[in-house]
Design a protein around this nucleic acid. Structure first.
Length: 1042
RNA sequence: GGGCGUUUAGCUCAGUUGGCUAGAGCACUUCGUUUACACCGAAGGGGUCGGGGGUUCGAGUCCCUCAACGCCCA
């Protein structure tokens, strides 16, 4: 034995091991993929983390799952590439940095200017990128760092411009006016996905619009209701339903259907709604029809305050069952009204500036904020007697996820990607199975989202991102635009492959109106593909101006699988690693990211980006809420690594990755003073300081909310979860099992293992190894991580440690058996480490290194093991070792041992007191159990005194029946009669219950005749066995004098 | 309103195509420091599988329905 083994501590010192091992891997170049390898490729691209901040537990989960697969595939002999990188995350990062600059320097982005701000964000990015990549390394991620990319670096930028130019040239990118979600605080568009709706208390104002020249019988005013009265300044129509009678009928029939189906408790409520509707029909239908006719007759209304004539139009958006049945239409400031505006060809008046104040179109209200405008509009209407009534009402206020301020629908020029064919191509890829999504149910959302084929708005009014490579100039006539295009083509650097032109005609056809609104006849857009192209200077010299906007961050993310490999160059990497193998991500970006990667991959590469997509669960806290720093329930993976080690973090992550559901992880605080743990509650998770509830401690510690100097001076409490303790304990168990094995390798000599030398327990171990390795491989190939960890846990703890190691102790003490036992022990440990490596890379590699010093040669054939576990081969045990017969023979040993221990415990026989026992069993079982007799002494301090078909119970004994065995423990002088009686009575009751169940089944003709003969026979056999058991229990009870 | 998911032991979760007495970890009870491990060992208690109905010889598993919770879309 070397001195190293004696010095192995009883705790795995992950702190010192992790950096050392990681450095060894990096120096060995094991993470690096080779573009010219003979081995089959296996590629995963990382979902690039945003450079906004640190990684959270969700990242820990996501990246663990990727590393597990990558490490297994590497061991299986694949040329693995795990492509790392980060995402510039446009709006999120810019908003974050802007906020910081505001806090520190009190400056806005406009004070700084575009160049300065972008410079500051780059500095931020550099800082956080290092931090994020460092965290991944601490987790043990085996990414190919030499290939690290950033979505805004030169390589990605080139790919973005090529893609943009290509789509622009195919007219799949265009500019158009669209109603967008406008964040007036950040002054940019935000996508639908970045908007959430917030319930707030608001009002419902009923406004009166005068009818111009009403005919006799017609009303003088029309009532419209709105939650946003200030938008009336931009109204361009009032709508009524074209067929109010039919619309009411439809609603009534829906209510009647509901009445039939709904629960008793709701019936009254629904009935009341029906009654109200009928009443409404009686009261209002004729009025609504009159309004409809007025609209058809071209009657106009006078828009109050603005003194503008607006038409009364028919459109199904007006709901006759609600309010007055009429609805005001503001096409430039409401999505639904916008649709009506398109349908009815209405004027669209934009009354808002980018900063959320009212513009010149709002007349005398110009310059007010929306809020001030509302106040004044309401007051002015009231003064005119045109405010009918005001109701309180809860409203859903669309709010920006980024700035938490209300969203304004806003009509602006935006760039779009036409989705028709692109979306279809991505749908086809999943429908026809070229791309598979696991779990399958997520394919549905992917398909239905793409199925809408809504054009993708890609421009963002930001400074941080890929600036749109388009230069534009307006012109006042067709001739002018043709002349302009002529001028562009007149230079030497003209290259049709690199420069494309689009002419956008103004939607406003009326020339006078265009002049009034200062709109051009047409706009010429020129897209330049290459950065620094001569054309840029030329265009600018003839009056073209570059588009200010940048691209949506997902535009560059969508290219990630091929841009990172060097596209559009035809690189060796691209040839080798594209299409990728697997994408592992979370479900909230299936549409935003996964779908777009598929369609961009198909467009640019004419091939799918990856074959398989695995969607993993989300981690929630004990209340079922998502973890987040803003709630204070977030667990920092670095805390976990510090406290439990990276392997424990990883194992815990993999262990909770089941594919059926999200997983709850109760969160606890740990006191830094006394290590006392207690649950985090909704209350204490919001406090800046918490007092330890342990009586003997009671000291305060700080949380992430600490701000005051007093609080900041305290020690920080950990935020953890007990699930990591389970993992840490397992790590330590493995460490000690390995430690034990390695301490017992004195005199180890490598040699081929002859299967003929194998004892029953050896064969059992081989059978288990074959079964477990196959199961783990299958599970991981199907992304069933939790199944893999549970299989390994049960095998390592229950089989390998509790049985094989305990048994092998005996054999190690026997000079004859020792060499062979050592080889089996080493082989078992070696295989176990390989299987666990993807989950616990540090622990297993460390053990591998120590084992390499003691037993460098340890294959079944006595061959040498590879120097590093990270590139050792994945275990493939000859499946012929797997044997149910062997396992059931070994189960007889386990059962006998269990029975003896059971009796010892129930009889309260001290562990130190030796006992004798016998086993009655078939001759065959006798043969297999006899050689194992000595193990009973070690494992239960019990002497197997008698075994065979004719063994009889001693006079005073406790008997147990386990399968085909009857175990008698000689209790002479030991017996606790009452305890034994109690145990037997209990067992008797259970057996009787089971007999009853089986008898019931078998007495039913239905079962006997209906079920397969095999099942019936099984029940009969079971019953016979139980009845036998019952007899024996009763006999034992008799002996005890019951 | 539409779609998806979940509901199994005190807690967190497994439970494959329906088929032996429904499992694991944690927590709990009792016993134990036997020279790998107390981050350990041995034994034990604890479940009407959300409610109701149906299909079947047989349902945690399949179907219908109700309820609660969660997520996504509108």
């Amino acid at each position: 034995m070397t001195s190293t083994t004696q010095e192995i501590p009883t705790r795995f010192d992950f702190d010192s091991v992790q950096p050392r091992i990681y450095e060894m891997w990096e120096n060995g170049g094991w993470f690096q993929a080779e573009s010219d390898s003979e081995k089959p490729p296996y590629t995963i691209v990382i979902p690039p983390p945003n450079v906004t901040g640190a990684l959270h537990l969700g990242h820990a989960l996501n990246n663990t799952l990727q590393d597990v697969v990558i490490r297994m595939k590497r061991m299986q002999g694949f040329n693995t590439l795990w492509m790392p990188g980060t995402d510039h995350a446009g709006i999120a990062t810019q908003a974050r940095v802007e906020k910081r600059i505001k806090e520190i320097d009190g400056l806005t982005r406009h004070d700084l200017g575009r160049e300065k701000l972008v410079e500051k964000i780059w500095a931020w990015k550099d800082q956080y990128e290092i931090r994020i990549l460092g965290q991944l390394k601490q987790m043990g991620c085996s990414c190919d760092w030499s290939r690290t990319r950033f979505t805004l670096d030169d390589t990605c930028a080139r790919a973005v411009r090529h893609t943009f130019h290509d789509l622009f040239g195919k007219s799949l990118i265009y500019r158009g006016k669209r109603l967008v979600n406008w964040d007036t605080f950040l002054q940019t568009t935000v996508s639908d996905d970045e908007v959430f709706s917030k319930k707030t208390n608001g009002h419902f104002w009923h406004l009166l619009y005068p009818v111009i020249d009403p005919k006799p019988g017609e009303p003088a005013h029309i009532t419209v209701a709105t939650t946003r009265p200030e938008t009336m300044l931009g109204d361009t129509a009032v709508a009524v339903h074209p067929d109010p009678s039919a619309a009411l009928k439809k609603v009534a029939s829906e209510l009647n259907d509901k009445l039939k189906k709904c629960a008793e408790a709701e019936k009254a409520d629904v009935q009341a709604q029906i009654d109200a509707l009928n009443q409404r029909r009686e009261d209002m239908l004729s009025q609504l029809e009159l309004l409809r006719d007025m609209a058809a007759d071209g009657r106009k209304l006078m828009l109050p305050l603005m003194d503008r004539e607006i038409p009364l139009v028919c459109d199904q958006w007006a709901k006759p069952e609600l309010g007055s049945g009429c609805v005001k239409i503001t096409p430039a400031h409401d999505p639904n009204d916008y649709e009506v505006g398109i349908r009815c060809g209405l004027e669209m008046i934009n009354i808002m500036n980018a900063d959320g104040t009212l513009n010149a179109e709002a007349g005398s209200y110009a310059g007010l904020t929306m809020k001030q405008g509302r106040k004044k509009v309401v007051a002015d209407l009231e003064a005119l007697g045109l405010l009918d009534k005001v109701e309180d009402r809860e409203i859903e206020l669309p709010t920006s996820d980024r700035s938490k301020t209300p969203i304004e629908p806003y009509l602006t020029d935006q760039w779009f990607v036409r989705m028709d064919d692109l979306a279809q191509s991505a749908m086809d890829a999943v429908s026809d199975g070229r791309v598979s999504i696991t779990p399958e149910r997520y394919a549905k959302g992917y398909l239905s989202w793409l199925g809408e084929k809504r054009d993708w708005p890609i421009s963002r009014q930001l400074w941080w991102g890929h600036q749109i490579p388009v230069w534009s100039q307006g012109c006042q006539s067709k001739a002018e635009s043709e002349a302009l295009i002529e001028k562009i083509g007149g230079v030497d650097s003209w290259d049709e492959n690199a420069v494309s032109i689009q002419v956008e005609n103004c939607e406003e056809e009326d020339e006078a109106k265009r002049k009034q609104l200062d709109l051009p006849f047409a706009t010429v857009h020129v897209c330049i593909r290459d950065q620094g192209h001569d054309m840029q200077a030329h265009l600018e010299s003839i009056g073209f101006v570059r588009e200010d906007d940048v691209l949506d961050t997902w535009f560059s993310s969508a290219l990630w699988p091929h841009s990172t490999l060097g596209w559009p160059e035809a690189t060796a990497d691209l040839k080798t690693f594209y299409p990728g193998s697997t994408l592992i991500t979370s479900r909230d970006i299936i549409t935003l990211w996964v779908a777009r990667m598929v369609l961009m991959g198909l467009n640019n590469m004419d091939a799918i980006p990856f074959e398989r997509v695995f969607i993993h669960p989300k981690i929630l806290d004990a209340y079922g809420e998502t973890m987040s720093k803003s709630k204070g329930n977030g667990i920092d993976p670095l805390d976990v690594i510090e406290k439990f080690g990276a392997d424990a973090l990883r194992y815990a992550m993999a262990d909770l990755a089941t594919d059926t559901q999200d997983v709850r992880m109760p969160v606890q605080y740990q006191c830094p003073h006394c290590e006392h743990k207690f649950d985090q509650t909704k209350k204490n998770r919001e406090l800046p300081r918490v007092d330890c509830p342990a009586k003997e401690c009671g000291k305060p510690f700080k949380t992430q909310w600490a701000e005051s100097d007093d609080d900041m001076a305290l020690d920080k409490g950990y935020v953890l979860s007990e699930r990591f303790e389970v993992a840490r304990n397992f790590v330590n168990k493995l460490w000690n099992a390995s430690r034990f094995a390695m301490m017992n390798l004195e005199g180890y000599q490598a040699a081929p293992i002859d299967p003929a030398d194998m004892t029953l327990e050896d064969r059992w171990l081989m059978s288990r190894l074959a079964a477990v390795s196959a199961k783990v491989t299958r599970a991981l190939d199907g992304f069933r991580y939790a199944e893999a960890t549970e299989t390994l846990y049960a095998f390592a703890w229950n089989d390998f440690c509790s049985f094989f190691l305990e048994i092998v102790k005996d054999r190690l003490n026997n000079d004859q058996q020792r060499p062979h036992a050592q080889r089996m022990l080493v082989f078992g440990l070696d295989t176990l480490m390989r299987m666990l490596h993807p989950f616990m890379p540090f622990l297993t590699e460390e053990i591998w290194q120590i084992l390499g010093q003691i037993a460098p040669e340890r294959g079944m054939d006595g061959s040498a093991a590879s120097a590093c576990l990270i590139q050792a081969s994945w275990p493939e045990i000859d499946p012929s070792y797997q044997s149910d017969a062997i396992e059931s023979q070994f189960a007889h040993f386990q059962n006998s041992l269990g029975a003896v221990r059971d009796i010892r415990a129930r009889q309260k026989i001290a562990n130190k007191k030796p006992i004798n026992f016998g086993i009655k069993c078939s001759a065959e079982i006798t043969d297999s159990l006899k050689p194992m007799g000595s193990y009973f002494s070690r494992m239960a301090l019990a002497e197997l005194t008698d075994i065979g078909p004719d063994v009889e119970a001693p006079a005073v004994s406790a008997n147990l029946i386990r399968d085909d065995l009857e175990i008698f423990v000689d209790l002479d002088g030991l017996i606790d009669k009452e305890a034994e009686k109690a145990r037997l009575e209990k067992e008797k009751a259970q057996v009787i219950k089971n007999i009853g169940g089986k008898k019931g089944k078998l007495s039913s003709d239905k079962f006997v005749n209906g079920a397969p003969a095999e099942i019936v026979q099984r029940e009969r056999d079971g019953l016979a066995k139980l009845e036998q058991q019952l007899e024996k229990i009763e006999a034992s009870l008799k002996v005890l004098g019951a």
